[in-house]
Design a protein around this nucleic acid. Structure first.
Lengths: 243, 243
DNA sequence: CGGCGCTTTGAAGACTCTCAACGACTGTGG
DNA sequence: CCACAGTCGTTGAGAGTCTTCAAAGCGCCG
């Protein structure tokens, strides 16, 4: 509810990137110890409460972020309230690859989170100074582009069970980067968020979860946890892409 | 029909980038005259017949392309034939921003075209040598990312008339970069391609065209030409994005 | 001029959405 | 510790929209 991420407590203006738990995942991994030091000078680490908004669509794009803990959602809203959740941000992800001067989506925390914030101007300077960083960002942008195209395929042409299977598998793969967790997938987002990410309604998402459960493809030990029972079956459903 | 782009005739192994008609639009614009010369050494300009396939999904990603004339489509196909046209490529556009070792879509010519082809290895070398180029590619990747997110919003949440209005306006904007043409938009792609780009059927696209025509928003002087009669009305339909 | 491919139009049907009520879980206050 | 209220998710019935299937129209090229 608090629009301002700076909540006084739990905000360290100078960070400790070297010991960062997601450094191996984040774009910072492109930097040497010395270069990381330069990054620290312009980085602020913030705690962000669940439900807080980091930025709103249309505002001047003043900062870029790297998530170190928790989860964010990127949301675009049409005039009449129709929503698209462009993406979910997990620890190690970078938010700031855009050609626009203004934010193109709201950035909202869906769990108690922690972000590293850098001004776009400072980031630009770092990019110019350290070509590794620019290279890493390009690489990241290409990956996100691939990812966006996968999402588009799902949005345009898949049926609800296929969409959900695809979503679960891709989330599982992303989480596997952190914990080597096998078949349990955490769902930090609500059913409505999943619906707005897959172009469905919350009701359809709910019905589809039950369908997958009744088919013994997944189990739902908790509202926020999916257990993959039949990975092959899920992958089969998600069609696994190309012809 | 011809899978091999090299058709013998009309293929200049050494190009003339300096006088290229789309140089101001393409990524090459980041290069100095001298640097362009280095690019020329590794570039081949090909004529590509309408209907020809430049690459297939799954093949090793050996080349990147810049389109200098004509039009291409990028196509992903599911096992059962469902298609998504990921995007249309117009002169000046770059095809090759991907994190994958293999092509993620078929690249097909939908008009008699001409491309500049560069090997990925050579391109990588140029990127390392000329940081302008890498910077330009990052900028381009960010723009494409923005674009992909706009497409996702349309795919997920817009209704057919909104999708089509949005599509026409965005195509018009892209074509305006070339000819300063005002209200006439060329449609190099067929109705089926538009359908597979917007997540609809060909029939729905056709019906929606007639609807927009009957609403006096557009005219269709030819199958392949749209004339925008009421730009404001179209933009209104397309909702123009944010809340 | 005739044939072929693409597009348009029409009618029936399937699917998801909408609307509505029920159920489960969480956190709070008595 | 229990009861309760609020939020979020699930389940059900009906309606609307796009799709599917089918046929006719149009333009292009031989």
């Amino acid at each position: 509810m608090n629009g301002n991420p700076a909540n006084g407590k739990d905000c360290s203006p100078v960070s400790d990137c070297i010991h960062c738990s997601v450094r191996h995942l984040a774009v910072c991994s492109a930097l040497s110890a010395e270069e990381v030091h330069a990054l620290e000078q312009v980085t602020t680490s913030y705690a962000v409460d669940n439900g807080a908004t980091l930025a709103r669509a249309g505002e001047d794009r003043l900062h870029v972020y790297t998530l170190t803990a928790g989860a964010l959602r990127l949301v675009r809203t049409l005039a009449d309230g129709r929503r698209l959740v462009t993406g979910f941000v997990l620890p190690g992800d970078y938010v700031g690859l855009s050609g626009s001067d203004t934010y193109r989506y709201d950035i909202e925390a869906i769990a108690d989170s922690r972000v590293c914030r850098v001004g776009v101007a400072q980031m630009r300077e770092l990019r110019l100074r350290y070509t590794h960083l620019e290279r890493k960002l390009l690489q990241r942008a290409c990956q996100e582009l691939d990812n966006a195209q996968d999402s588009a395929l799902a949005l345009a042409r898949m049926q609800p069970p296929e969409k959900l299977a695809d979503f679960i598998l891709r989330l599982a793969e992303r989480q596997a980067r952190h914990q080597g967790s096998g078949n349990r997938v955490a769902l930090p987002m609500g059913r409505g968020d999943i619906a707005d990410h897959l172009g469905l309604t919350m009701e359809t998402v709910s019905r589809t979860f039950t369908k997958l459960r009744q088919s013994n493809l997944i189990a739902l030990p908790h509202l926020t946890v999916v257990e993959i029972l039949d990975r092959e079956g899920l992958e089969n459903l998600a069609s696994d892409g190309l012809e």
